[in-house]
Amino acid sequence: MLEARLPQGAVLKKIVDAIKEIVSDANFDCTDSGITLQAMDSSHVALVSLLLTSEAFDPYRCDRNLTLGINIKTLVQILKCSGNDDVITLRAEEPADTLALVFEPPSLERISEYEMKLMDIDNERLEIPDTAYHAEITMAASEFQRICRDMQTLSESVTIEATKEGVKFSAEGELGSGSVTLKQGGSIDSSAETTTIELVQPTTQTFSVKYLVNFSKSTSLAGQVRLAMTAPLPMLVEYKISDCGHLRFFLAPKIDD
């Protein structure tokens, strides 16, 4: 059986909110080491890869590997019944045809219990190859969100250009064009606001901005976001979940002629 108590239940709410526009149904794979999820959007443009290690939970127990087929919209609805400070406990037995969710506020004066039906999701398991990225940008997650939203007002595409001086986001639409350039910050100041660029070679790629805006809904999970690019491969957009996992998105670029 699975019994996973998440002291910071809000983390689960944030994760589910961040992926709900991208995936409708997904398998949550539970093993002794934690919970993972991997799912592509229906148009095969974006892939979500979640890792929540057992350290995220206290306690965590998973005797045997379990796959929980979850309708994300249903989970969003049920999680709306929890408070932001609630401890969330997930419980499932074998065979996993339902998932029990228990919400407890810090006061412990209220316990709410929900049970959701699980689905049988036929999902191909994909292996994400290790990629040597040509450009890796670490920047404030809130800044990335703002830039994506700003670029979306002009165009459905955004071009990201990484050089050793900085990273430039630009958009060109029928109404006009715009760009935001972030300069590489000093190495001494390593606050969440600092932009750092690790460059093997200057890299430019163009992406659908609508997906990036969706990814950036993960902003509340982490202070920083990591963008990793190697043309013409998919870009990696990564949010770390404290020291106990990550939420990664892979996005296929626009095809360069």
């Binding site: 892979f250 296929a252 626009k254």
Partner: peptide
């Protein structure tokens, strides 16, 4: 407008 690429072929099915 540049066409949108897809992820197929990049990730191996295991």
């Amino acid at each position: 407008v540049a066409p949108q690429g897809r992820l197929d072929g990049f990730f191996k099915v295991t």
